[in-house]
Design a protein around this nucleic acid. Sequence first.
DNA 1: CGCTACCTTTTGACAGAGTCAAAACAAGCC
DNA 2: GGCTTGTTTTGACTCTGTCAAAAGGTAGCG
Lengths: 142, 142
Amino acid sequence: MLRDAGLRVTDTRVAAIAALHVLPHSGVDTILDAVGDALPATSRQSIHNVLTDLVAAGLARRIEPAGQPGLYELRVGDNHHHIVCQRCGAVADVDCVTGHAPCLTPSQTSGFDLAEAEVTFWGTCADCSAAMAARVDAGSPR
Amino acid sequence: MLRDAGLRVTDTRVAAIAALHVLPHSGVDTILDAVGDALPATSRQSIHNVLTDLVAAGLARRIEPAGQPGLYELRVGDNHHHIVCQRCGAVADVDCVTGHAPCLTPSQTSGFDLAEAEVTFWGTCADCSAAMAARVDAGSPR
DNA sequence: CGCTACCTTTTGACAGAGTCAAAACAAGCC
DNA sequence: GGCTTGTTTTGACTCTGTCAAAAGGTAGCG
């Protein structure tokens, strides 16, 4: 898979891909922790390098919800979208209705040459909804 | 306008709003420069405070396209979207087709309580398209 | 008009995330 | 096995934004 993309097969890259497979929508630090279990000498910079290379090779995708560090995922090429929890930052995938980019066309483009539409849904995840409901039940709302 | 929102009317705030009116989709530094023309003693932190207050009061909105610092605009309440140039970062408004949030509904919510859909279009602005075309014409593509 | 209370602005230190560059190292080819 | 070139490490640095406390100004009241 790495070889097909013209990248050398190294421990760091294999470990990073494995980590991303188990933990999609992870940031650099999360991947670093996961990779560190097997390769404790790995530096944060290496993770940055690996992830940047994967994105450049089209093997990974980087998303950057407002107010959060960059997150990476291996699911590429299907132009899907994301729903992000406004409270805890949890991210889940949302399938694209049309399946190909751009899945949406703006009413006017202001002279822009359109490439892609990125949709981010914002809401509250199940855990946070439950936590908020519990607080209201306990008598200390807001 | 500030008074209506329960905020005190100060030079800094008036100048910041005026700057935002002339330069929509501006970041903190751009506003600071503009405000600095009339009020040279203004600090970057003050601009942060003012803009944060405006957003909290519902007078401004903050957007944060991936890879760019936060940008602010006065156009609020109509749930419109943005198209961003992938090359130079220029931002233009795009009217929302439905006019109210969420303008889109995901096919599945993964247990999330949906609040809003944010759409960002990515493309190339007219200036950058022209610049790229000119470079191709000159014989040095990419 | 002047005083007081509270909201704003300033100042300065700090944290998070990411970039840049050069040296040390290892994968893949001959 | 040795060489070439791509990777990883190390460490300094930039950019953006946050936190906290002191100084300053606005607005309401007498």
